[in-house]
């Protein structure tokens, strides 16, 4: 019983970080119908930047929490304006190729700067907290709390604020949004910046949990794609639900069938969802 509880809690914590990444990815897809293959590298930049700030420059962790997402937003905005904006209305293969190329370039810049080794931050949030008799990692609790908090805050922002409504309008009907006086271009730029900032923040949060390296992005991105497919492309709530579900499935599946089969369970769930509900649990589908 205790083992089950331990696995369940660990799964939910794991899901929190997936949620933050999946939300950013989904936001970008929702508004632009661009699948961002470089999203994993945004996470990597966040994690490696945190390592540099905390280990090389010896700054406190909370500084990284504030600085890194801000810098990522600027970086995302610059990429959107200079590159992504050019391919939004082109066939999807163009944006896939572009973001894939971007991902390769970023990985190699990372290798050039940091080398191929693994960077960890010693002594940061290494303690554990007892929850219902189960020891949970401080780093994971912080990551989960911040990730879910930010995901929900962005969710509320989309629902309540005027600009949030504009983002949703562009996501649903760009033409009508534009007729109603919304600057589609501005919304898209802001969305990409927001998505990049969220991935960067996810990177900051996982820096104390995992050892970071320039090639870590793809390890996470594959799972986040599964989350997005399960939750539904373009659906924000779906991404959160899918992430938590996938975290739990991964940990429980790994325990029950071994990690090899456990990883397969994740994708079996994905296939099952695709068979029964091709647009995902809460998906918006492809715009006609």
């Amino acid at each position: 019983m205790k083992t089950l509880l331990e696995l369940l809690l660990n799964g939910i914590l794991l899901g929190g970080v997936y949620a933050l990444m999946a939300c950013g990815l989904n936001l970008i897809f929702g508004v632009m119908r661009v699948i961002n293959f470089a999203h994993g590298e945004f996470l990597t930049i966040g994690a490696l930047a945190t390592y540099s700030l905390c280990v090389t420059f010896k700054l406190p962790f909370w500084m990284a929490l504030l600085v890194v997402p801000a810098v990522m937003a600027v970086l995302g905005y610059a990429m959107q304006v200079t590159l992504i904006a050019r391919v939004i209305n082109a066939p999807m293969i163009m944006s896939l190729l572009l973001t894939y190329a971007l991902s390769t370039v970023l990985v190699n810049i990372g290798l050039y700067i940091y080398g191929g080794g693994f960077k960890g931050i010693p002594g940061l949030l290494t303690g554990s907290v007892q929850v219902m008799g189960v020891g949970l990692s401080e780093a994971r609790l912080v990551a989960f709390g911040v990730a879910l908090g930010v995901s929900l805050a962005v969710f509320a922002f989309l629902k309540k604020s005027l600009f949030g409504k504009a983002i949703r309008a562009v996501s649903q009907e760009p033409e009508i949004a534009s007729i109603s006086g919304i600057s589609v271009e501005r919304v898209r730029n802001a969305t990409f910046a927001l998505g990049a900032a969220m991935a960067g923040l996810a990177g900051v949060l996982i820096a104390p949990i995992y050892a970071a390296d320039p090639q870590m992005g793809s390890r996470f991105l594959i799972k986040v794609f599964a989350v997005v497919v399960i939750g539904g492309m373009g659906s924000y709530g779906g991404a959160i639900a899918g992430a938590l579900l996938l975290g739990v499935v991964e940990v429980l599946g790994g325990y029950a069938f071994g990690q090899m089969a456990g990883s397969a369970v994740v994708y079996l769930v994905m296939i099952a969802v695709l068979l029964v509900r091709p647009r995902g649990l809460f998906g918006v589908g492809v715009r006609a």
Binding site: E6, N10, Y210, R219, Y255, G258, Q259, S263
Partner: peptide, 11 residues
């Protein structure tokens, strides 16, 4: 045996 890319060992 765990596959490459595994980062969670809680199980």
């Amino acid at each position: 045996f765990y596959p490459a890319g595994t980062s969670d060992y809680s199980n």
